[in-house]
Design a protein around this nucleic acid. Structure first.
Lengths: 341, 341
DNA sequence: ACCGTTTTTGACATCGATGTCAAATCACAC
DNA sequence: GTGTGATTTGACATCGATGTCAAAAACGGT
């Protein structure tokens, strides 16, 4: 027998298919004795329910969709990994769907996934979780969705975030505590709202410390390494250069770090640099980058939990669940006492 | 009407469900006139067939599995992206399944995926594509599989690879052409067979050039950045240090690069360094890394094509398809003329 | 021992598509 | 106009699970 069905199990255990189904799904109303017998047969035959048949008859698909803008980024990889692992624990599966908002027919693609796969829920990664046109598609289909680090929780049945503002504030406070006063900030692209929150945190800390932010040292990048290189050059070439650079993500911080090396500025002795993300490359640089650890995998895992939780099965419009997960300031070699210390 | 079924389409077009099914699947034996009528209604109603019902009745699932050791690596991300895009073109979906060979019950996990999802095919990434215990699982289930860069094509219905040996040889020839003679090689872990082929290519080039390889400068790492740091130190601290370092992957090359900087050795003036992969971080370093571009996304895409191709639907044991995709030597700033030039 | 409740169990219909096979239609030759 | 064979079409069974609901069994109290 190549494929084992529920009937095989039922026959062998001497019960009906329905009873086997009950056991499998952990429903009540099965005598412990029978339950045990069925479980033994299931184990013996190594039976695995056919996911398709299952989702055809129930309305559940046991499938979650992860919608991502740029599936190649390290950020995406971490989020995906976190979601994947939690799905596995919960006996769900994950389908990754890239969404290219620049592309021609992205809406059609997304609709197709929703309709054809009958997803049980969607996890939407930043920055596209802030795209109203996209979230509307899910709302329209009545599909529960959880947004990862969104700028507004409004349309979703849930969200998982970290406190970007506080994290940035902590980082800035840390730099201030090291004696730095001229601190430059490299901001991310406008499409990433969380980057704006990081800037808020930075400014908040500066204001609280009674230090005026020099607007010429607050620059906007696009989260790429290259931007870090260029903006770093701009910041460091001038006469009154900053003693610390805080970039809104690691890639840009790394760019700035490389620029500093090129210009012969010693890091961290003459210049402190810090990033945000705790990306893999932040450890693959020298000196290693002081940064903020984003709980990416944890956020994704929590998103899975929210979607798997029965109360969100159907987007009743009622229950919502919003989680805030803790971040962590990770001090490595790229920061040191500033001139004021 | 929230969800549109084939019956809705049939009713509206005034034909039977079976005829609609025929049109959808592009089968023969439908009068052009009817076909057109049905197509119009499909478009009108924006009908999408339910993937589950479809795979329950046919034996196809329209699902491909991507089995990966470490889904967080940049390598995995590229492979996944390539597979994802091609799947989309072919109206397939991709399920990513991490396989932790170190974990307790990986075989059970894999069996579960195979049985529950009724995958149409599997793509197995390196290095686990060389794991006989794993490939046996698929063979046992009669599931067609394509191996990515395997060391042996034997058990699969297909494979996609690049020529690691030739690529490494080209790189070495390039270094030799720059005048380098003392070239060190940092090898990858034993579990990655392709790394061994890179070493072969390196040695081949050296031998052909009539240069004896100094065995004390052929070191084994584990593909991590940290290994590059440490082995780089070992290579560069000694008295007769090499003028070029060729690492079997970019991460280790980057580690060596950082070490050189720490030691105050100018790259590329006093030392050339090159890697293998063309990973994202190879561009995020300074100087940027000379490396070999692996056609990762292309290989994954080709793997999808092989599996989708009807002749491999059932692993008849007959047809096999093995592809060799071209690589590319990418010269960037980390290499320059050696002392002999 | 009997009756009313509650719990346990299974028969059967169902989800939405495709496979099978026979019926209906068409094309052509006589 | 009819017979033959090829083509087109649809009725019905099927895939493998779960939902519904009624029958059967177990329980509790008198």
């Amino acid at each position: 027998m190549s494929v084992i069905t529920i009937k095989d199990v039922a026959a062998r255990a001497g019960v009906s298919a329905k009873t086997v189904s009950r056991v499998i799904n952990g429903e009540a109303h099965v005598r412990p004795e029978l339950r045990e017998r069925v479980e033994r047969v299931v184990a013996e035959l190594d039976y695995r329910p056919n996911a398709f048949a299952r989702s055809l008859s129930s309305s559940r698909s046991y499938l979650l969709g992860l919608f991502i803008d740029d599936p190649v980024s390290g950020y995406a990889a971490d989020v995906q990994h976190g979601a994947l692992m939690r799905c596995r624990e919960r006996s769900y599966h994950l389908v990754v769907e890239p969404v290219d908002l620049g592309g021609a027919n992205w809406a059609g693609q997304v609709r197709s996934s929703i309709a054809a796969l009958r997803l049980d829920g969607a996890i939407i990664a930043p920055p596209i979780c802030d795209e109203a046109a996209l979230t509307a598609l899910f709302a329209e289909a009545g599909l529960p969705m959880v947004l990862v680090a969104p700028s507004s929780k409004a349309p979703a049945s849930g969200s998982v975030s970290m406190d970007d503002r506080s994290a940035a504030r902590e980082m800035t406070d840390y730099l201030l505590g090291l004696g730095h006063r001229r601190i430059a900030f490299i901001q991310g692209p406008e499409s990433h709202r969380s980057s704006a929150r990081r800037e808020d945190g930075f400014r908040e800390a500066m204001v609280t410390a009674g230090i005026a932010v020099d607007e010429s040292t607050v620059l906007r990048g696009d989260f790429t390494f290259r931007a870090g290189l260029e903006l770093g050059e701009r910041l460091l070439a001038g006469p009154a250069r900053p003693t610390a650079i805080f970039a809104a993500n690691d890639d840009m911080a790394l760019g700035a770090l490389i620029t500093a090396m090129k210009l012969g500025i010693a890091v961290p002795e003459a210049l402190s640099i810090c990033g945000f993300d705790d990306s893999a490359s932040s450890r693959a640089a020298w000196p290693q980058l002081t940064t903020i650890r984003q709980p990416k995998a944890e956020m994704a895992g929590a998103a899975v939990d929210i979607l798997v939780n029965p109360q969100f099965r159907k987007q009743a419009g009622g229950a919502q669940s919003h989680l805030l997960l803790p971040h962590e300031l990770i001090v490595r070699g790229s920061t040191a006492s500033g001139p004021g210390a």
